[in-house]
Amino acid sequence: MPIDIIVVDDEPALADTLAMIFQRAGYNSSVAYSGEQALAIVSVRPPALAVVDVVMPGMNGLVLAEAIRGLLPSCRVLLFSGNADTESLLEAARREGHVYEVLAKPVPPVQLLAKVASMLGENACACGR
């Protein structure tokens, strides 16, 4: 069974291409363009990992990450961001005891795949070309 990954980013092109990359890497990926949309999807189809943009209109990535953790304790969350404001958001989250790993955009896809693979554990790596 392929591993489920959800990609959440308010930029459809970014989210779609990333989902395709995961797909090509052998994952079963789904896409959401907002936090709210993502919550709806994960509650129906729980992923093993969520790749979430931090700065999004409406529900931001951190709020979504917390919600996912509450909903699916086994789901891993990887944040990525292209915004300088991210640090202050993370600092606020850290103060509440939530620690996340954040990658800075742009992340070379190879690096991202390696990161995801390591987060999911080598056994779960479904690399395939």
Partner: peptide, 21 residues
């Protein structure tokens, strides 16, 4: 500007990767 650029850059990266693979 960086923020505005980073997202497209990310996407371009994805596109190139997809094309390469």
């Amino acid at each position: 500007i960086a923020h505005e650029i980073n997202n497209p850059l990310e996407t371009i990266g994805h596109a190139i990767y997809l094309a390469m693979t």
